[in-house]
Nucleic acid binder design. Structure first.
Lengths: 240, 240
DNA sequence: CGAGACATTGAGTAGGTTCAAAGACCGTGG
DNA sequence: CCACGGTCTTTGAACCTACTCAATGTCTCG
């Protein structure tokens, strides 16, 4: 079987990365070449994607699902340092300095590019490198926003910020439910423990604050994992 | 007077950016062209460099001194989201999303590139864009390390981490005092308040922890602003 | 239906903040 | 040269937020 055919050509046309991610800057022609080096890979929720120790052999676009990047202290304390949703990218290019773990927080679908051929593409297609730079700058901005949250916000503000962030991303990148601007919905796939590790809180505190926000009417929970933000403005105010 | 001569040609040869920063990837020829668009700019300690609100018209390399990037919450709470030492870069390229303030934490010397001509250079010199990407990735790594500190470390660990970080940077980038590996020195130009804003602590707590570390013999203070780390290993252990 | 994983809630504690006061340093001007 | 004022630092005491420990409740899946 031809290696280039292992990847279903039709997929790109419905892919988030093609619409708004890394692949959005590619000409049809460049996309063709890009397809040839790429392959899809699926991970079940909880599955390990890579750790900083081992040599990562690919760079990837997130096509669906949530990838969690964590760092661990010697005694087991964890900090989530990034949540990657489609069409974010994952993997290290250039030298790696500080190792972290990448794990599928939900079922995840990645579009993987082997290191060698990806860097070749990068050098050959300037728009691609430009786009990668832009996405990296965006990630840096997000990381800095998160530093403010971790360094200076109260527990309530942190939890409110998380809901706001997830709702915004869910409603921006998806074409779905753009209907009502002031009432956003989101599916919360993260466990309390994971939320705590992201917000720098214990999972009990996360619990209490979610309960508190529900009592205040700032968030609603119509389903098991489904949440609704009736008044975005109000939640933004309590998020700081 | 020729605009190109406004910038002293000799400076590049002793510049940190040329040795290990953005300019290190440039050929002599490209450096010549780069010089023509650059101009030096000095800021006194405490001076405002730019805020996210106003349109920044330049991108710059830090040649000497420390630049502090801060974000401010509605009620005045501050978080330092980055400390830039030579040969880091400062300024926003591409779209700006979340505004922050850049301020000179010490006397600072910048090598500024006007936006337009800098982006032109970027497109014309692939190594430059590559280098910028690498530096951005490094900054992202640093930011994520800091997220671990802010989210999960104790006050003592935070302060120890800061001393370690500053000492490492001071002794790596400078050619000075590479003498003893296990005894690093550093000059602390930041105020307690600024350290607190960086570490997500109150300045009183910073004070107490510095005192505690001195009592434990993990740091020494031979001069007003001068600190010495007698045993790097030991401090690393208490830094987590 | 029972086991295991996850979520919730309560009670006590601790680490860090806040408020307050005193001390050190520095530049300025009489 | 020294007194003065301002800024920054240090230290103490009370308080509070979030953590820890522990028990109970809930959901899912075999």
């Amino acid at each position: 079987m031809d290696a280039g055919m292992a990847f279903d050509l039709g997929r790109c046309y419905s892919c988030v990365a093609r619409r708004t991610g890394l692949c959005s800057v590619l000409s049809d022609n460049a996309l063709m070449r890009f397809k040839k080096i790429a392959h899809r890979r699926r991970y079940a929720a909880g599955e390990h994607i890579f750790s900083g120790e081992e040599q990562t052999d690919f760079f990837a676009s997130v096509c669906s699902g949530v990838v969690k990047l964590t760092k661990v202290l010697f005694d087991g304390r964890q900090q989530v340092v990034g949540l990657l949703l489609a069409p974010d990218t994952v993997g290290r290019i250039c030298r790696k300095r500080s190792p972290y773990f990448a794990e599928a927080a939900t079922d995840v679908e990645l579009c993987c590019f082997p290191h060698g051929s990806f860097e070749q593409m990068l050098d050959g297609v300037p728009e691609l490198k430009q786009r990668l730079l832009e996405q990296t700058l965006d990630e840096l901005d997000s990381a800095r926003d998160w530093m403010v949250l971790l360094g200076r916000k109260t527990a309530e503000e942190r939890v409110a910020s998380l809901f706001l962030m997830l709702a915004t991303r869910a409603n921006c990148s998806d074409y779905s439910e753009q209907i009502q601007r002031d009432s956003l919905g989101l599916d919360l796939h993260l466990k309390r423990q994971e939320i705590g590790d992201f917000l720098g809180l214990s999972y009990e505190t996360v619990c209490r604050q979610i309960t508190a926000l529900k009592k205040k009417g700032l968030i609603e929970q119509p389903g098991r994992r489904r949440f609704r933000i009736p008044d975005t403005e109000a939640l933004t105010r309590t998020a700081g």
